[in-house]
Amino acid sequence: MKNFFLIIIVVLSFISCEDVVEIDLPENQERLVVDALLRVYDSLPGKEMEIRTTLSSNFYDSNPAAEVDLLSITNIDTDESIDFSPRSGDPGVYTAYIPNEFLVDATLLLLIEYDGKTFVSLANYIPAVPINSVVQGDGKLFSDDDTEIIINFTDDGNRDDYYLFDFDLNEYILSEDSYYQGEEFEFSFFHEDVRPGDILTITLMGVDLEFVNYMNQVLSQSGAQGQGPFQTPVSAIRGNIINISGYDSVDNIEDAIITDGYALGYFAVVQAYSKTINIH
């Protein structure tokens, strides 16, 4: 349904004109940003996971990397922890090899120490379903340059699912299964800027309702939707990473006090399935 807004906006933007203007923006209050969407693939026993930490910036500036003092993930059920280490030459990127069994069906705690502050987040592993097929169609939506990608998958009829589709090139679609519960389902996505010979990786991920709400805000505020007459209210896009004080171990995390200096970004552990497609 999101596309609908997009279409109205596109229509209006055709009859309207755009120009770049200078706007003075309010001063940014710098926050830690954590990009921790961990994708777990069945096809591999485990994988090097990557978490990126940056600082938020004024809209016109770029986001500097944040070098944290500690970054670890703990399996709450087993009490085991894995520390991430900085990737050399790539500041703000932390990696660790994590076996699938550490993440699957677990509740996980992300712990970050940065600038004398402690940040934590909890996530549950969310399952997904495999992609049946990804094919290129010949449909067009707005222009003859559109490339249609048709994705087909079979929903699990035993649970309510939410999906995040990554169509590559930073294009994402969110969906919930309420209208195709347990069905084989397919839909089309239209890429604007791909050419024959391009190879795209299409990923289907299982997510939960909280992440859908978060990602909806991310997509609407980052996307072409803009701030027209059909703008939805904008927000600070709070994620699930909080700042606490008085923390000493996972066992007594309840005693910690939540403070206001929350971090931006999100921590989620999701099952993912990917397929690649050669554009012809």
Binding site: N28, V33, D35, R52, T54, S56, F59, N63, G265
Partner: peptide, 11 residues
């Protein structure tokens, strides 16, 4: 007007 920006999953 945005008070700031951040990056998440390439966005």
């Amino acid at each position: 007007y945005p008070i700031g920006q951040f990056e998440f999953e390439g966005l």
